[in-house]
Each structure stands twice: as C-alpha cells, then as structure tokens.
Design a binder for these strands. Sequence first.
DNA 1: TTGGAATGTCAACAACGCTGACATAACTTC
DNA 2: GAAGTTATGTCAGCGTTGTTGACATTCCAA
Lengths: 166, 166
Amino acid sequence: MAETSTASEGLLFLTDEQLRKGIEAMFFAYRGFTSDPDRILDGLDYGRAHHRAIHFVHRSPGTTVGNLLSILGVTKQSLNRVLRTLFDDGMVEARVGSRDKRERHLHLTDKGAGLERSLSDAQRARMRSAYRAAGPQAVQGFRTVLEAMMDPDLRRQYQGLKENGL
Amino acid sequence: MAETSTASEGLLFLTDEQLRKGIEAMFFAYRGFTSDPDRILDGLDYGRAHHRAIHFVHRSPGTTVGNLLSILGVTKQSLNRVLRTLFDDGMVEARVGSRDKRERHLHLTDKGAGLERSLSDAQRARMRSAYRAAGPQAVQGFRTVLEAMMDPDLRRQYQGLKENGL
DNA sequence: TTGGAATGTCAACAACGCTGACATAACTTC
DNA sequence: GAAGTTATGTCAGCGTTGTTGACATTCCAA
C-alpha cells in the first residue's frame, strides 16, 4: 500500500481503504487498551463500568453523581447500580454537599484509591510503551486525531474538566 | 500545560498526567467513533456485535466462521447468536466450503451490503473529517500509536488479513 | 408554598459477553 | 475402515451493563 508515502508527502488521499484501516485500528487498539484493566477486574466482582466510575472519581474528587452521569453518558439507574456496589465494598464514599445538600460528592476511600492505582498502572504501562514505541510526533498526532473524532460535547468534557471543577 | 511543547521538542516526558490524558482521549474518542453506527443500528434490531460481524464479512468475503471467531475474540455461542439473526434477515449467507465441507464461507447479500454501506459511510465520514481536521502528519501518528497499543496477536490480525486470505 | 432539581430505588427488559454440554458432519490418521 | 480431531451449530443458564418507566425523598429557589 502507498498509504504511508502519501501521508509523508503531506497529502491526504483519503481512500475508503485508508479510512477502513483507521476504523480497524481503533477497533483493535481499543481491545488492547481495555484488556489489562479487564484482567484485574475479572478477579473482583467488577466490570468496566466500575473502572470508569473509579477513574473519574479519582481524577475529579468530590464530583457529584450528576456530573458523573453526564461524563459517562449512562442512565442514573445504571450508574447507581455500579456506585452502590462500590459504596458497599468501601471503595467510594459519598459526602452530602455543604452548599447544596441534595448533592453527593464522591471520593475514593484508601481502598478505592488502591484499586484505582492498580488499574491505572496497568493501563498507563501500555499507554507509555505505545508512546515510547511511536515517538513524540506520533503521540501528538494521536491525540489530535482522537480529539477531532470526539463529539463536541464530549470534547468539552475531555478538555474542560479542570476549568469546570469537575 | 506544557504537554504540546515537550512533544514538539522531540522529547517524551511521560508524566502520569500526560498518560491519563491519553487514556481519556481513547475513552471519549471511542464513544464518538461508535456513535454514528449505533444510531443506525438502533432502528433495526441490531447492536454493535452485528456491526462487527458485518464489517469483517464485508472486508474479507468468504471468511469462515472460525476466522471470524478469532478476529472478534468472542465465543462461538455469542457469534452464532448474531450470525443466526443475520442469516434469518437475509443480510449474510453461508456457503458450504468446496475444499473442506465443514467450513461455512460467509458472504454479504445485496441487502447486507447495503446495510454495511450505510454503517461504514457514517463511520468513515467521521474518520474522514477527523483526519482532515488533524492533518496528514497527525494521521500517521495516530495509526502508529494505535498499532503500538494493540496486543501482538491482534496486531497481526490487523496487519495481515490480506496475506492470510482472511 | 410551590415547582423543579438531585438523587435513590424498584421492576422489567435487551444486548451480548460467558461456561458447559452435547450433536453432527467431515476431514485425517493409523 | 475405525478412531480421533476439527468446524460448526445448538440448548440452557448466567452475569454485566445498558435501557424505560414509575415513584419517593430531600432540598433549593422563586
């Protein structure tokens, strides 16, 4: 295939074949991306939904249930089922809001932080080795394309979490 | 953040923060990546599993059930449930192998090819616009990082389908 | 005080993974 | 030609995680 040579010439011949390759790259890479945490979660009674909840609670401590709902894009019933098991297992705790007492602010317990670490260590290790193998230029391109692929709403979630206090 | 400047200097400071950003980029981008086909599938009685089956039958016409199993990485029971509905709906047909009569060679019907086209048109449109927005260099990097992120087995599937006659 | 927001919960259902067991046909090997 | 293996299909059951719909509680805000 002449794919790489066209790209290095600075031109974009976006044949269906090229685009198909990109689509399959996403498919296969995502499998790799999730496989390490999945292996860890298998042992416990958790799945990917638990991982996602733990991830976003970790990165935005004190986030509310509503915020988590909008980030994860699932129904509250679905999220609640997951959060309940995390509460029960002492992974996450919910503190009633001081300003607005309807809100529950979510935090990882020490135990939860420990699980988060083992999950994200595994995932980061793969990401790190992929980044190293690909090189800095590639990493930049990787992030650029992924951002362009997001829905605008999700892109805002992705970029703006700090500013929003999420 | 100094993320982009470090990358453009040709150095890789792989902080946990950088890696977390990459992880979330995968998460949010994958949501966008699947959202257009998902909308189409919603109307029909199909889900992502049907999409995947249709995709790989399209790109490797005559592939066997066994091949599809190894590409998709699911159990035969799970795949069979999906294939059965696709047979029943006249989307996919199975032809008994000529060399080995145990094998079923899978092909899209005209109807199936029509669905495939509408699914992949939607997905390619997003991929194309992401590629255009990001530029050729970024596209190259995108693919490089994704390949590095795959499990070796999956990477072989990804790269070698033509050579294997899959 | 009334309306709406944030949250929790119950019930039911669907998609799609899984395991285990069993059946059939066809190829391969001794 | 018998025996073993391979490719496939199927039944039954179960788990995770998504969905809708309905209803309750608490609390903020106008």
